[in-house]
Design a protein around this nucleic acid. Sequence first.
RNA 1: GCAGUGUCUGUUC
Length: 391
Amino acid sequence: SSAYISLLQCCIQKRALQETKLIHTHMNKTGFKPDILVYNTLANAYVKCGSVVDARNVFDKMTDRNVCSWSLMISAYSRHGPHREALGMFRQMQNYIEPNHYSFTSVMPACGELKLLEQGMEIHEQIIRYGYERHGVVANALLDMYAKCASMENARKVFDKMSQRDVVSWTSMIVGYMQQGLVDEARRLFDEMPQRDVASWNATIAGFAQNGFVDEAVKLFDEMPQRDVVSWNAMISAYGQNGIVDGALRIFREMPERNAYSWNAMIAGLVQNGLVDEALKLFHEMPQRDVFSWTALITGFARNGLVDEALKVFKKMPGPDVVSWNAMIAGLAQNGHAREALKLFQQMQLSGVKPDSKVFPSVLSACANLAALEQGMEIHKQIVEFGFQSD
RNA sequence: GCAGUGUCUGUUC
């Protein structure tokens, strides 16, 4: 049992999915009966190697689960999605067991991602009832949830009440203000914060860039004491979002190491600036294409009026998600193919992909162009239904 | 005791 655990710990450190699976099958073949600790470590290994599905399978097979098992899965869904699942499991666990501070911190990011302020506030009250609101990590998670939900007053309240503020607390506040366009407030916090780590620098750089302040972003990038791949990626996006393609390309070439984010950010930057051909080149050059790369390419073709190319890409891509469908539907709608856009909208639902709020603008404009009042009203109904469970 | 919080990439605007 302890042998399995130390092997799995190695897999966690090395993010080794294949080895984790090997250990898992070995346990099954030898008829070994894992205890809770082994199961939890196995599930955790799967999560750390990026396979939430495998982790969930392990979780489902467990006959005994403790609060760690639940918190582990909740945080997995909070990180990797589907975020709703984090909330579902958080609710479900309470039929069997009391949540603790780990469970509360694990579920908060899901509320933030989904912008479920009401839910977040309910859980906040629960946190108070359980007496965890003065716990540093819990308070950070809470404040970040409020910031992500665009409720800076509440975030500020949590922040001001904290007895110990760390880099995480400060960074969450900065990100929140940046997302609200309150750049000066964010800058003040960045200047005032007692310590900074690479994440606080990165967050501030990205925030400046998203608000159109490329020069400020560049200044921080030059000033920062340490850079990691996230810093470089943030600069690719900073330039790309602000129309400075050669700047983005320079960073992309000069950076010491690239990951999928780097490639995708560069491809997106080219696409946003109308350079699909260049984007396509990088798309083929990159070592591993993912759903982000494919979707960016679809948008690239569609924005240049190359709908057929976009459709070809869409049909070829493996596992399109709701965003990919949205991109293709929007591409059709924007190029005057309203009928096809609506058809694809139906196909999306038939294929089991739930629409999210971002698809409706394209779909409605398609209806408007067709003067399709009936369909428009049908979709209006869907939007209303959707409103009650909006993302 | 095994589990927890912040920073970078695609669709809408």
